[in-house]
Design a protein around this nucleic acid. Structure first.
Lengths: 137, 137
DNA sequence: TATTTACCTACCTTTACGGTTGGTAATTAG
DNA sequence: CTAATTACCAACCGTAAAGGTAGGTAAATA
């Protein structure tokens, strides 16, 4: 398994924000209810998205969250990278990874590279807009 | 991350067996040395492959391991499925998984399905023979 | 009979995931 | 000014898996 619930939830939250946007801010509580995610858990998922400027959050009454861009401007890969860290299928390909000693002679590395490319290309090609209700085939 | 060292090692072992085959049996120790894997750890990786009939193992002096088919008859997906269990990118798509409550309304499920198909199609299309030295581009 | 080999069981340490508890800080409505 | 509403933050916990080690037993052959 590769994508944890954190990533899945983050994606669903982003879609929820896109679908239910009326220009104002949407309270965490509302999202949690609609998406059937515990309020306390969702509380731990949103801050990184704010920090990365994917969404905006304001305190106090009438506050909540809002997208900072148009839905079609969010690549899925971008969102998942934030919550999941690295999407590489093997540790050998992760960003900060120390190069494997077998690197030069490894017969499997090309396989993993190709797979990695495949995954990224796909997740780069899909946006939040593609996953919204009214865009559903 | 998605593929653990067990899967990576299993693959390298299979390739090693294919490359160094002379018709006889190859001792675990030799593979471990060549592949730079601890003997004790490799010992835990091979039994499942024997059980699944991907390789054959014989006891005693002169014993060891041997492939049961030709290298081009091993799909990568088959080997990884044995050591890794399930290759699905999200738990929702794993075989024995209880269907998610949001299943019907989930906007992200189609994304995961498509990604899953992509991964499987690729790993189905590559064989051990494709990863061997003399076949390397 | 001794040696070589596969095979098996149990354990250990570290990491992560999924989640809860119990708050604090900012903003606004009254 | 106060109370309500909201985002935000830090610490903890239980479970499971990953990666690996230790110490054996069983089969086959020289």
């Amino acid at each position: 398994m590769m994508i944890s619930t954190r990533g899945k939830y983050a994606l669903r939250v982003m879609i929820d924000l896109a679908e239910n946007s009326d220009g104002g801010y949407i309270a965490m509580k509302k999202i949690a209810e609609r998406q059937n995610i515990s309020l306390k858990y969702i509380e731990r998922i949103l801050p990184p998205l704010v920090k990365a400027d994917l969404i905006e959050g304001v305190h106090g009454k009438g506050g909540g969250y809002k997208l900072t861009r148009k839905p079609e401007e969010y690549k899925i890969s971008e969102i998942l990278s934030i919550t999941e860290g690295d999407l590489a299928p093997v540790t050998c390909l992760e960003c900060g990874a120390e190069p494997c000693k077998m690197h030069a002679e490894c017969r499997t590395l090309p396989l993993w590279s190709e797979l990695n490319k495949l995954i990224y290309n796909y997740l780069d090609s899909v946006t939040i807009a593609d996953l919204m209700r009214d865009m559903k085939s």
